[in-house]
Design a protein around this nucleic acid. Structure first.
Length: 103
DNA sequence: TTCGTGACGTGCA
DNA sequence: GTGCACGCCACGA
């Protein structure tokens, strides 16, 4: 597969995550057929165009935390969007057991 | 072409 | 809970 296909697969998986649910980078990687390339998913998210319609905010790390610098504008945006969808934060964390997307 | 750099994950101290 | 080493993979210098 080409790199472009890889990106498209990642986009497609992310677009399937329903509102109020979250998926981990590793989970997205696995569903996209890149089981051990969680890092690649993160890198791809960081390169998304600012006007993308992808629900990138529903992708977090395996510890139930956001993987952006806590003082960055993106961090606040992601947390706010998730809370508006009903995701409950406990401090800077959320319960993966409760909100993790299970296809 | 090789090397360093990440929105990561897992295992272990 | 925290930190570290490795493994993964695309990308730019």
């Amino acid at each position: 597969m080409t790199d472009e296909d890889t990106k498209r697969r990642i986009y497609q998986v992310v677009s399937m995550i329903p509102p109020g649910r979250v998926a981990t980078y590793g989970q997205v990687a696995e569903l996209a057929g890149l089981s051990r390339a969680a890092r690649l998913v993160g890198t791809t998210m960081s390169r998304l165009p600012k006007d993308t319609q992808l629900p990138w905010h529903r992708v977090i790390n395996s510890q139930g935390r956001l993987s952006l610098p806590p003082d960055s504008p993106g961090y606040a945006r992601q947390k706010d969007r998730l809370q508006r969808e009903g995701v409950e934060f406990i401090g800077e964390r959320l319960s993966l057991r409760q909100f993790r997307w299970q296809p």
